[in-house]
Design a protein around this nucleic acid. Structure first.
Lengths: 343, 343
DNA sequence: TTTAGCACTCTAAGGCAGTGAGTGCTATTT
DNA sequence: AAATAGCACTCACTGCCTTAGAGTGCTAAA
């Protein structure tokens, strides 16, 4: 996969990629010669371009058009990006301001982060909230709603709340509910939510408990409450992909929007991006989300006070302004980590 | 606005509208003559069509194309729809199945309802959840999160939960939190959420309370908790509008997607639809959502056990299958009302 | 009042030449 | 040996023309 290229070829490739990113149109040799400070004639550039095409870094849509970078070229471009443009002070300020102002609930912060990523990059912002199940259990509470329903409220130490309406076969008096929650709060003290779930399942098999009607009922109900209701994902700025000329035909666009609507599936795919540290870049067919559609994905993890991890990033066309988006995602991930660690 | 038309003219208009709904293409006189069982020559139909055009019910994109119904025609068509197609048993079953199966939380039910509306109609489904503030207060609960944060959890009698992380100037011990919630639970007993809010504001001015540090603090915190965090709105199946040929150009589509992204604004607009009972139909420029874009909106209210009302419906192109969508929305609203009233 | 007939209009589609951007190759220059 | 100038060639794009066909409006006849 490593490509050997002379310094000049590399410069020219870089110029082509950047030009194409800027214009979205096939780049001709003369355009490169003109734009590129290094004075070279278009003929020379042509020779180099022919070479680059042989190597699979460029293609031409037809004979008499300019060249278009292939995925491989973007990959090469990104990997050899020496001068990652520093994120501008202006942008930094905006990110800080918008992420800070958005209230103190985790969901609000993350949603606003996603919005901010989208509006600064002009692509689609995504944020996957840290998994609730890795959070540490804080408290469970039961509230009687009508005669056959109990609302179970589950709170984690980081202030996340999950609630679930549970149907019960018969009416449970408030007193019992209180005792049940006391019992469970004791039982799950200090565990993560997923550990708590295991503890419940284990406890259910405990003989002593099986004969205590109240306890076994408590376990049954809490088991439902603890079963995760799916994680949250914030996709913001979808409409911006309509601004990209490459998605102007309806077919490709529909693919993308369909993918965005299936948030559950998207979550699964995005979980793959959570393994590595630092900024991850997926170009074109490498992208787990909607392979067919010529999109790229730039993500980075962030961490919370509990060391649970979330994911944030940007989805855009393959022809994306990598040099500005990459540092932006990087910076935002660091900032959010910092924000969420302040307790 | 009332239009006087002979029976025959009306039949022909109806045929044109239906044909255009089916094909999305300008309808010619011969097509009507052929399709329409009543044997008439195309020439006759032409005369009638000319008349209808004069009356502003039809337009032609150019001389030698067929005719297209105007908004006025759709309005007329919908108003004089005698035979509202009954909703098919198959569809009924599906609606029931999907709305039932979706778990017992209100949000899940409503989201699935929106999905169902979308997939059965092939347009965009929308559901506006009943206003939380009209719900009746059930319980408030405080949980200490870290040293300077309190999580306030507010529950209504219908099992809706609203939680809010509140920053406090100093650390409040658990004991005090418990006393605070007892005091507040007493105070807001039996009120709606919005009444509860007023009660809190009133109580704050009470001199006796102002000198009780704990009480006044309780009021301050609960005031924040009770302030509504915006209502929920579920918009599902957005991608389906891409299937509509009239939205194939990027500009119009962007308008619509932008509108969908601004859920807050949409909510405001949709609130206007809540006043009347029964199925409401907004055609083209009558539609509160995104006027410019040639869309229609069909909505109906639904009610919950507490007599709070929500809204559900379908957004589609002006050229929408009214005769199937209208009874579908109607039926779904009734069904959801029934489901939510079973306590 | 309806309809047949006919001239007319206008779009969509196809064919054709001209233009220009861009290429690849070769001969020449440095 | 590398860079470049020159040149023939390719091919999409544009504008122009023609043709076919769908649909209309009008008039005269049934």
């Amino acid at each position: 996969m490593d490509v050997e290229l002379s310094a000049r070829s590399r410069q020219i490739l870089e110029a082509i990629v950047e030009e194409y990113i800027a214009t979205a149109e096939p780049v001709g040799s003369s355009a490169v010669a003109r734009r590129h400070a290094l004075t070279l004639s278009s003929a020379t550039v042509r020779n180099v371009m022919a070479h680059l095409e042989e190597m699979g870094l460029l293609t031409s849509p037809h004979t008499s058009a300019g060249r278009i970078p292939t995925e491989k070229a973007y990959r090469f471009y990104v990997d050899s990006l020496v001068g990652l443009r520093q994120i501008s002070r202006e942008e930094k300020k905006q990110i800080i301001r918008r992420c800070r102002q958005s209230g103190s609930g985790l969901s609000e912060i993350l949603k606003e982060t996603s919005r901010t990523l989208s509006s600064l990059s002009n692509y689609v912002g995504i944020v996957v909230a840290p998994s609730f199940t890795a959070d540490i259990f804080r408290q469970i509470e039961f509230i009687r709603i009508g005669t056959h329903r109990v609302l179970a409220i589950l709170v984690s130490t980081s202030g996340l709340v999950q609630n679930r309406l549970i149907e019960t076969s018969d009416d449970i008096p408030e007193n019992d509910l209180l005792r049940m929650s006391n019992y469970l709060n004791e039982l799950m003290q200090g565990l993560t939510i997923s550990q708590a779930r295991e503890r419940i399942l284990a406890e259910m098999k405990n003989e002593k408990v099986q004969y205590d009607r109240m306890m076994s009922r408590a376990l049954q109900i809490s088991e439902q409450a603890v079963t995760t209701g799916g994680e949250e994902i914030f996709v913001e700025g979808q409409a911006r992909i309509l601004d990209q000329p490459e998605f102007s035909d309806a077919g490709r666009m529909r693919d993308i929007f369909r993918a965005f609507e299936q948030k559950g599936q998207m979550l699964q795919l995005l979980n793959r991006c959570m393994n590595a540290d630092g900024v991850q870049i997926y170009i074109g067919s490498e992208t787990p989300v909607s392979q067919s559609a010529g999109v790229s994905l730039i993500t980075s993890r962030f961490v919370t006070a509990n060391n649970t991890v979330g994911l944030l990033g940007v989805i855009g066309p393959t022809r994306m302004g990598y040099s500005t988006v990459i540092p932006m995602v990087d910076y935002t991930a660091r900032l959010v980590s910092r924000l969420l660690s302040e307790t």
